[in-house]
Design a protein around this nucleic acid. Structure first.
Length: 458
RNA sequence: GGCCCCAUCGUCUAAUGGUUAGGACAGCACGCUUUCAAUGUGUAAAUACGGGUUCGAUUCCCGUUGGGGCCGCCA
């Protein structure tokens, strides 16, 4: 409907990219792409104490990983001179003033207000003094309710009297969040502010600042928060919260699909495996949920498995790394294939490689399939298998050779009675790749050695 | 404490006045199978509560309860 859509994601580089930030960024990105608009990444680095390059790098890397391409990149600190000019203008027009109350005085005041069941706020007594130290505040005389027209929530009304005189900056060169956001959103012609619900109570302040600055008000959309298992705002104590922690275990497209469906759903018929083209096509703020969503990795695991299965072997091999030493190309591809179809998280790949390639010790009972098989019969079966395999010519088995050679044995004893001991003696594990897969990967020498070891247990 | 928001299976959600309240993940059972995985079939599981409005409420209104967010010279 609107070609001039301009949205921004404005993270502060004071921590690693948070999953909630990534989700908000995704919604902004989807909204922009859906409308053919502009998506801006703006790093809010006005807090000089806490902002770190390391965190900015992590945020950028996270955006790249998720494929959230941005059309413009800004750092808030780069616009310091403009912020200063705006502040001076507000001062000149008497809309803003210096408040020289000390931190201690303010803290005391708000404590008093709380104990007297008053809303904590600061209406400054220094408004009309012409001092030039202290923090800059916006003179707030508004009495009419401020209506936040929110696309997701509808109209939300706030009493401006409860806000007090809004802090704008610590000094002309040290602007504060609420002020810079408004200044920069206006400067960048932001049309829609899509952000977390935790910002909704900042919004009336920003509307007031916007009015003082005489800038157009953007449209607001506050999306619900991501929650931990106990329904409180997702934080470190709930487990993995930074995107980088997810990167080692999940495919970006799986992760993207997962967070897209946290607080938003398209129509039912589409299913839930949705690539970014469909996401862009279907996305609308009107379908964003109002209630918060718990981040549960069970579903993410499922998404990952689904995307893993669809992955070309070639791509999967990038996650798996080069072939381990001594493993030929054909064998490696078999190993990749088997692993790809079985693994849930990327981190399990190396584990499965290790389990397959390295002979582990196990007890004889494993070969008996939990007592389902007779000890003597198993020994005999393994012995028969050994002899059959010994007589196969090639050093590396092919499925065809294996099938035809082992067929008589399978028919004679039954599949399970042969294949369980075979697989167990090859893997030494309750669960592993299939027996034929293992034989093909391990090759004749190693396979026979493992069978020999199994026989030695009896 | 003040202000604001929210409320459908365990979880993510669909259904915006009329459905046996649907799907997905997880769970359970069974089948297939070569273990696991995958797959097939089936199963259990929700409209927080109380009032209205209406012929009829998950849906609209009010209240209660519960949960959450914000209340910085952080963002």
């Amino acid at each position: 409907m609107n070609n001039a859509v301009r949205v921004r994601m404005a993270p502060s580089p004071t921590g690693y990219l948070h999953i909630g930030t990534a989700r908000t960024a995704l919604f902004n990105w989807l909204f922009a792409r859906h409308h053919g608009g502009t998506f801006i990444l703006r790093v809010e680095d006005t807090d000089k104490e806490r902002s770190k390059k390391e965190f900015e790098d992590d945020i950028i890397r996270g955006f790249e990983w998720l494929g959230l391409t941005y059309d413009e990149f800004h750092r808030q600190s780069e616009r310091a001179s403009e912020h200063r000019i705006l502040l001076e203008k507000l001062l000149d027009s008497k809309l803003a003033f210096y408040c020289a109350h000390t931190k201690e005085e303010l803290e005391h005041e708000s404590k008093e207000q709380m104990t007297h069941k008053q809303p904590p706020r600061h209406i400054c007594a220094h408004r009309d003094n012409s001092q030039n130290t202290g923090i800059l505040r916006l003179r707030n005389d508004t009495t009419e309710p401020i209506i936040v027209r929110d696309i997701i929530r509808g109209d939300v009304s706030f009493d401006p009297q409860l806000l007090g005189d809004i802090s704008l900056a610590k000094g002309l060169d040290e602007p504060l969040y609420n002020f810079v956001v408004v200044a920069d959103d206006a400067f960048m012609n932001i049309t829609h502010v899509i952000r977390g619900e935790d910002h909704i109570s900042n919004t009336p302040k920003q509307i007031l600042i916007g009015r003082a600055l005489s800038v157009p008000e953007p449209q607001w959309a506050h999306i619900p928060l991501l929650l931990g298992a106990d329904r409180s705002k997702l934080s470190k104590r709930h487990g993995a919260v930074s995107v980088s922690e997810y990167r080692k275990d999940y495919l970006p497209e799986a992760f993207l699909n997962f967070i897209a469906l946290l607080g938003w759903h398209p129509h039912d018929e589409l299913g839930e495996i949705l690539n970014r083209e469909i996401l862009i096509k279907e996305f609308s703020l009107e379908r964003v949920q109002k209630g918060g969503a718990i981040v549960s990795t069970e579903k993410l695991d499922w998404f990952n498995k689904e995307y893993l299965r669809r992955l070309p072997l070639e791509t999967f091999s990038h996650y798996a790394g080069p072939a381990p030493e001594g493993v030929g190309e054909t064998q490696y591809n078999l190993l990749l294939e088997g692993t790809k179809n079985r693994v849930t998280r990327l981190g399990e790949i190396s584990e499965m490689f290790h389990d397959t390639l390295v002979q582990t010790s196990y007890k004889k009972e494993l070969l008996l399939w939990n007592g389902k098989l007779e000890e003597m019969a198993v020994r005999e079966t393994i012995d028969s298998i050994y002899k059959i395999l010994f007589n196969i010519e090639p050093v590396y088995f092919t499925p065809k050779d294996l099938t035809s050679s082992l067929e008589p044995l399978l028919e004679k004893h039954g599949k399970g009675a042969v294949l369980w001991p075979l697989r167990a003696s090859l893997s030494g594990k309750e669960a592993s790749l299939g027996p034929f897969e293992l034989l093909s990967i391990l090759g004749k020498t190693e396979a026979l050695a493992r069978l020999e070891h199994a026989l030695s247990l009896f």
